[in-house]
Design a binder for these strands. Sequence first.
DNA 1: CTTGATGCAAAGTGTTTGCAACTTA
DNA 2: TAAGTTGCAAACACTTTGCATCAAG
Lengths: 143, 143
Amino acid sequence: MNMIQEIESSFSGFLEKKDLKLTSQRRTILHQALRDGHFSAEMLLDFSKKQDPTISKATVYRTLALLKESKILEEQDFGDGKKFYERSQGRKHHDHLICIKCGKIIEFENEAIERLQDAEAKKHQFKIVYHSLKLFGFCKDCA
Amino acid sequence: MNMIQEIESSFSGFLEKKDLKLTSQRRTILHQALRDGHFSAEMLLDFSKKQDPTISKATVYRTLALLKESKILEEQDFGDGKKFYERSQGRKHHDHLICIKCGKIIEFENEAIERLQDAEAKKHQFKIVYHSLKLFGFCKDCA
DNA sequence: CTTGATGCAAAGTGTTTGCAACTTA
DNA sequence: TAAGTTGCAAACACTTTGCATCAAG
């Protein structure tokens, strides 16, 4: 079973556990949500409409909430008013470099930073649940 | 000249340079924006209305844009849909711990993390302009 | 007295919701 | 066939804008 299939079955398990139904729309949206990279709700609606033109904005937003809750997607806020999503399940945690000229998003992992964050939290008797680190600036093509 | 006066004169200099006018509304809003802590546009409108009940939402938003541009305020996005602001001029850079239960915001400075961020950026030939690090979780009173 | 600023209400965003018709299990 | 789901349009929350009037320089 490959990663995609694994996620699909984990989503149907999630739905079952909550007595929710796996509709054709949810299947289509999930499928489109598993593509690489970062996408907005609007983009996901466009992708999904190509597969099934009757899918509505409302269903995309409602499914997005389920995909978030089931930890299949992670929500990202790059500060431009709309939210972005990326596949989370089956991937390592990472942070982002965001080019403020071309919009390119570069991912990176940095263990040392995470450790310092934990230490900082401990100093304030704070229990971290999740974090967000974004470095905004110019990528090498835009500098 | 204390910090507040210094900022006020820097704002009037900023306006003058751009051939903009220092109106009584802008003076009032600036004054309210210099209070400690984090506030939303709506809160700033409320504060300002107490000084001058005729001040409008539109003027607050328009002034907020100027205060941002002049680096007097910094915009923060804590991911709850609305934007927050805090005084930036005359203060050191810092990041935030945000309690997801009570909403408390704790500030911290961490030189070591900043250095690692710079190193990470260099690795990707990326030029950082600004960054945002937020640790979400439970503060010591809510844990 | 010229140019920019204001308040108001209307228009824009992105997202959520009420509801009648429709599917899934 | 009962319970959840859908599409639609209307409602929302926050922010921005057009315009006639007003005030700073």
